[in-house]
Amino acid sequence: MSTVEDQVEVAPAVPDDAPRPIERAGLLARLTVSIIPPLMLGALVVAGWYAVSYLLLDPKRRFLLKPPHEVVQNGFLNWSALSEMLSALWSSTKVAMIGLVIAIAIGFVLAIIMSQARTIERAVFPFMVTLQAIPILAIVPLISFWWGTGQRSRVIVCVIIALFPIIVNTLFGLQSAERGMHDLFTLHHASRATRLRKLMFPAALPAIFAGLRISAGLSVIGAIVGDFFFGRGDVGIGQVLKKYSSQLMGEELFAAVLLSSALGVTVFLTFGWIQTLAIGKWHETSGGRP
């Protein structure tokens, strides 16, 4: 082999400051590193689960924790149960997402108003914190008392539970633009609207996404909790959980719990992905990890 070719390869003309492309081998190694540990832990959990089912519980009490393969067989591979769970899950997903969208709309408006006037922020904030401190279970009866037990009440539970992180994170984000950047906008006589649109809002995006991911997860919980307590209207995953637990359908109950958690994880990852798409190019620690 000629040494000239080697030299050409080892001297790429990349400026010092230019970002380097991620090497393939490095990417693979990183994936391996990030996938293997959770897989191993997952295997351990399943093994522990078997151990509990077969070694700890005597056969008469095994219904309390059915072994994994029975959960898969009777929960996931049994079409009538699975279709019931999936349609319930879809109904709850819709409720959660509608609630989330409404919470985002209200949260943005409130945060923007508060960011424009300190007095309003000072007036509103204590009440928000107080409201936030009320456990959602204490509000549920009140909501059914005022709005009944239909879909609307479920959405309201989601809005209430998801609202606070959106307001707090958006407000914090809107206030996070550096003083120097504000000075720059002041120097060039930027209007309030311009300042909001071109400085405060983009600066707030990382915080907004952090809030969104929290709120999306909470909204899913809200949808399930609401559904669990409001027995009427569309059947959501909450009602399905309730039914399985009251009828001692262990395998199905377990499958439903796993599906609910999968929904939460999916929502979390989806918002992480949207975040990466939206701000990954310029923001250091966006996407991927919480």
């Binding site: 550096e178 120097g180 000075d183 720059l184 701000i279 310029w282």
Partner: peptide, 20 residues
Amino acid sequence: YVFQDATLLPWRTVLGNVEL
């Protein structure tokens, strides 16, 4: 007015910042 810090908007490219 050139500040002590560069005060570039991190969400804009060099071009976007210079156009501001």
